[in-house]
């Protein structure tokens, strides 16, 4: 065992792992965030606390992580390379470990231009950092944890205890390079991988076949990303505008049929699409868990935390394993 986090223990137990994503609020008040966190309690092994996703200013991941810990959940603190240089990142990692945070997901982070494209003004004029990239960040944490050394070479009195995660986009171009991408993250030290949302199950199976041939599934725990679609418009938007997500036409068509079957009643249109979305997500969960080398799921509900309990129970993933060390 490397750090003894609940996530690590469940992975080692061999049971299918469940992580869920939770975004901190655009607020200095955590009341709503705590409510949402409690909707996930008991239904996941760890909860990812995002780090200013889409480059929108939100409560920090490190603070959000501490808040969910107080509620009895285990956080996966996300750390982007966008906003901090190696000095700030390593400093935050030491602080996070001292606070008891035991998992960290390394990601590049959405470019700040994103922040102004949606319904918010964001900070498209911000200066980004990108002193290091994801692969390098993974390597830096591993060196801190396992060798007790900072990136610059200085020794740490006490090394941070962090289970290291990285993201992976398996089903988008350049498809033939994606496995190499994963290999580099794994060789850098990624203990677990959370993938971008999977909709194209055939393509994902093909990529996993390559990953198994490379033996990477044994060196890291791959958790397949599941996004719960809520409407035809959302699916259409993701298919055309969200990088890294490939959605087969038949899934989009299913949702369109559900929408059109509802007649003109607005509530009914919403209800039928949500039902179809849940069905799609739950089918995908069953399908990814059948793939050899997939060790669990990473569920992204995009602010629809109310359905997590239902999904996890219906998919036979409840109760979550209680691991005693």
């Amino acid at each position: 065992m490397k750090v003894g986090s609940n996530l690590e223990k469940v992975i080692l137990s061999g049971s299918p792992v469940v992580t869920v994503e939770l975004g901190p609020p655009m607020s200095a008040d955590a009341t709503g965030f705590i409510k949402k966190a409690n909707l996930l309690k008991g239904f996941c092994d760890a909860v990812n606390i995002t780090d200013c996703q889409t480059a929108i200013v939100r409560m920090s991941s490190i603070a959000g992580s501490l808040i969910v810990m107080k509620e009895g959940l285990e956080p996966v603190m996300q750390m982007t390379c966008r906003d901090r240089n190696r000095i700030a990142i390593q400093s935050d990692l030491l602080g996070a470990s001292a606070l008891g945070i035991r998992n960290c997901l390394c990601i590049a982070g959405d470019h700040q231009r994103f922040s102004g494209l949606g319904r918010f003004k964001g900070h498209p004029g911000a200066k980004n950092v990108y002193d290091i990239d994801t692969c390098q960040l993974v390597g830096i944490i591993k060196r801190m944890r396992d060798d007790g050394l900072q990136q610059g070479g200085d020794r740490l009195e006490v090394a941070p205890r962090l289970f290291i995660g990285a993201s992976w986009t398996p089903t988008a171009e350049p498809l033939d390079f994606r496995p190499i991408n994963l290999k580099k993250k794994v060789l850098s030290g990624a203990d677990f991988i959370q993938t971008q949302g999977i909709f194209d199950i055939d393509l994902f199976k093909q990529q996993m076949q390559t990953i198994r041939a490379m033996g990477l599934h044994e060196k890291t725990a791959i958790l397949a990303g599941i996004i719960v679609p809520r409407s035809y418009n959302m699916l259409k938007y993701m298919a055309t505008s969200v990088p890294g997500i490939t959605i087969p036409e038949k899934i989009i068509h299913r949702m369109l049929k559900a929408k059109e079957s509802a007649g003109s009643d607005k509530e009914e249109i919403k209800r039928r699409q949500e039902q179809e979305g849940l069905k799609i997500a739950m089918e995908l969960i069953h399908q990814v868990l059948e793939i050899d080398g997939v060790r669990g799921i990473h569920l992204q509900t995009i602010s629809w935390e109310e359905v997590v309990g239902y999904i996890i129970k219906t998919c036979g993933l409840y109760p979550r394993p209680k691991i005693h060390s």
Binding site: R82, Y130, D133, C135, Q136, W168, A172, P174, N181, P243
Partner: peptide, 13 residues
């Protein structure tokens, strides 16, 4: 735009 050395990132489209 991210000057990454071990690319591509997840944002390549």
């Amino acid at each position: 735009p991210k000057s990454i050395m071990n690319g591509p990132c997840g944002g390549t489209n």
